[in-house]
Design a protein around this nucleic acid. Sequence first.
DNA 1: CTGAAAGCGCTAACAC
DNA 2: GTGTTAGCGCTTTCAG
Lengths: 338, 338
Amino acid sequence: MKKVTIKDVAAQLGVSVSTISRAFNDKYDIKKETRERIMAQAKELGYNPNPIAQKLQQNKTNNIGVVVPEFRNAFFPDVITGIQDILIPKGYQVLIMQSNENAETELGNVKTLYNNMVDGLIISFSADTQKVNYYKDLLEKDFPIVQFNRIIDKLQTPKVVLDDYAWAFMATEHLILQGYKNIVHFKGPKFLSFSLARLKGFKDAMHKHKLLCCDAQIIDVHGLDINDGKQGMQMLIDKKQLPDAIFAVNDPVALGAMMVMKANNIEIPDEIGIVGFSESRLSDVIEPSLTTIKQPTFEMGQTAAKLLLQELESGIRVSQRIKLSGSFKIKQSSVRLR
Amino acid sequence: MKKVTIKDVAAQLGVSVSTISRAFNDKYDIKKETRERIMAQAKELGYNPNPIAQKLQQNKTNNIGVVVPEFRNAFFPDVITGIQDILIPKGYQVLIMQSNENAETELGNVKTLYNNMVDGLIISFSADTQKVNYYKDLLEKDFPIVQFNRIIDKLQTPKVVLDDYAWAFMATEHLILQGYKNIVHFKGPKFLSFSLARLKGFKDAMHKHKLLCCDAQIIDVHGLDINDGKQGMQMLIDKKQLPDAIFAVNDPVALGAMMVMKANNIEIPDEIGIVGFSESRLSDVIEPSLTTIKQPTFEMGQTAAKLLLQELESGIRVSQRIKLSGSFKIKQSSVRLR
DNA sequence: CTGAAAGCGCTAACAC
DNA sequence: GTGTTAGCGCTTTCAG
């Protein structure tokens, strides 16, 4: 597996290595025909500049690290596609790592990526990340980081999020306008910023419409997965405290709740209406189809990538927080036919 | 974003850089206390060896490239997790790229990865990959490649696959034993090895039971996604050629077919039974739940990684083909209550 | 046990 | 226009 190097090409042609180098980085003067001769010979020999050497020399890698908590749901893969859409045409490589919703693995990922000299990082934190000193260190070294979706407020970086508050408010209000009154919120992990925003949106909508919104109506399901939704619903059934509607922190949680309701012959949306968040592929497959908020995943990735690019090119960090807009997909799970 | 280098540490301690280097690669003799002094100082300064420089020097990267067609379904993410499970403890980094089911993007991915000097590649080809000369070139240069799931037979590399033929046979036979007779197969893209294997399993099972298996019973749905299944089913409905059972090349195709059946009030499994392949998360959410073959995704990733490791360590390529076993998940979609 | 020095493949002054 | 040369940060002979 011998690689062809710049020297081989130079030797073959009897020119110096710098000429070869210049031919490949066409910002220098070089005679057109020498250039062509070089390119031809290079092709012949199967020569490609060794990126590792370039990186060492230039102290930059053109690699961007992306760390996400999981990629089992469509959300993160879609965001990543958006990131790639911006970065790849600019000559960047996107290295993806998954933290598996584990703060420790996440830290390991980031360290690996940093030590392998990615030029910057785009990250969505795991649900249990609390310690941020390492990230603060990186920021102090002026290492560019952009956060999206799962952000940590006290880290001074550009951030891209959905307007979770507004959409949670709207989702709740939708349920209220459908005539549901005893509405429960399945809330997400407490360290996640969007959990809090969605919770607040729920509460404010309830208050606006003068509906009861006591502690018993906020159910902490401890996670974001189908099983968490199942457990939350099961608990309500066991306690015989059935609401007439549920606003779930995300789709998988809503799905889990629906599966338990169906197993217990609870009619959706007649007995209990339900709304999810972050449209997943599952929301159309389940019956009845699940009302949900659609996030602009692709655009979120693009935006995060652009912000990073900005910092990379200007060297200046602008810790702005960009709020993206979503859209509301009303389906069967929350619409009572009266 | 200044990085601390080996020189900084050396200067601080008044020793030479080689001593520092030795302290970090403990294969050389070095006085225990100097070593400790060095490590302490390194930690103090926040020094980490620069992997880029190490790579240049050692002409190896400890990076492994993984190229998959997509990661929207759980299948590939799960396999990747298996790959990481083996490779990360061995000190390898796993760089993931997605080809988006596009042979051209795929080739671009592979070139990027190769030029960035990954030590080896684990790949599952896109559905439309046909040209393989570049891959052959790589193999001639003794570049290690392992294929899994979506393999190309003529490429002489280690391969990891499910025993698609056997499981397709079993799935079909299951339908037959349930009393279905007019069974149709929704077949996958023709360039994919598993499409052919599953098709053959279907045909052989039909023949064994002396059931009619003519051309009209093999439906080419042209893809592997929900929409392809929808179109295939819609076509059958339009032509009024309804079978009494369907064996679909994979779960999304089966799902799509089911969605169309349900929209047309076709009872599953009473009017039409259906079996998928490669258990997806969706198979439990849809109603009725979908009978499917579960693939050992995690193990598939592990196996592929181990094969690559073997070649990396020994320098010898063993182009074996490993067939993994799956399991059959019988659910509601294929079981008629009589 | 430790230091000096060469060199991995490339780029970018600096000469000519 | 093109060649020479000094590094980028590290490992690894070769001396001592």
